[in-house]
Amino acid sequence: MRRENGASSTGERSAIPAGNVAGGTARSSFLAPHSSATHALTVIRTYLRLGLLTMVQYRTNFLFELIGVSIHLATALLGLAVIFNQTSSLNGWSSSELVMLVGIQTILGSLLGIVIEPSFQTFMENVRLGTLDFMLTKPADSQVMVSFQRVEGGAIAGTIAGATILGIGIARHGERIGLGQALLFAAMLVLGIVIMYSFLLILSTLAFWFVKLDNVLVIFGTTFDQAGRWPIGIYPGWLKATLTFVIPIAFVVTVPAQALSGRVNGLTVAGACVLALAFLLGARWFWRYGLKHYTGASA
């Protein structure tokens, strides 16, 4: 594996801190204890490339993933059909807007399923088996390595299927999507991924303390699958707050959908940015906290 230094060789290359495997000396910065951001991107790219090569060997994964996501979509759309047999709008959302919502939810979920979720599953298993220590001795940011170490390329089937459903929803909706709306939608989608990534990182970091909780990601998965396909407005206040700040899934699906249909206001966009930043920094802090208190497998 070629180590590229390029423009990053400004003296930031650090040796493994003596006597502290778990992550960083007093000198290291909060954001990049071992090296610069370029190095982090290099690590990410390497993992993704290796994952892609592995995926090509397992084409059947893609097929089965496609079957699975098709069943999931058929279930969601049939459910919408039953509901819209009884009403013509749900909390102000038309049926085509809800179809768009399902598409967005599927895209977001599958994007996480390509690399983030499998990597975190592997991480928690490594904590349990004690093999995490090997990764921590490597001279790269541990959070980056842990987040990108495993690629399940088959999940891209979900992104394709979700985009198709989103397209169908937009077509049925009938209104033109302006460029501004499309850009805002893309931006809100990215923020949504950031928020969900951070939340998954927080959940996974719990593995440092609760080794027997190997199903902790189920909290996210089930909530996202079930609650993430409905507009956040239908939930009563306490549930709405929970689904925005505690398990932040309703926010991340609803806001991009609102951006697409042009009914998001500046306050919501600003709120999404603040929430994303808060979650990202909070997750980062919690990760570093967990690492610092991690005593290793053989302790």
């Binding site: 509901i83 009884q86 009403t87 709008s89 749900l90 909390n91 609760f210 027997k212 909780l213 190997d214 199903n215 902790v216 189920v218 909290i219 089930t222 909530t223 079930q226 609650a227 409905w230 239908i234 939930y235 009563p236 549930l239």
Partner: peptide, 27 residues
């Protein structure tokens, strides 16, 4: 701990369906 997480996952779907259909009835 793991058991409570499974219980949580059993509760989510009926709860969400409850909220959705309540919204339909109210509308």
């Amino acid at each position: 701990g793991a058991t409570f997480i499974w219980l949580f996952s059993l509760i989510v779907q009926p709860l969400v369906s409850l909220v959705v259909w309540r919204t339909v009835a109210d509308s």
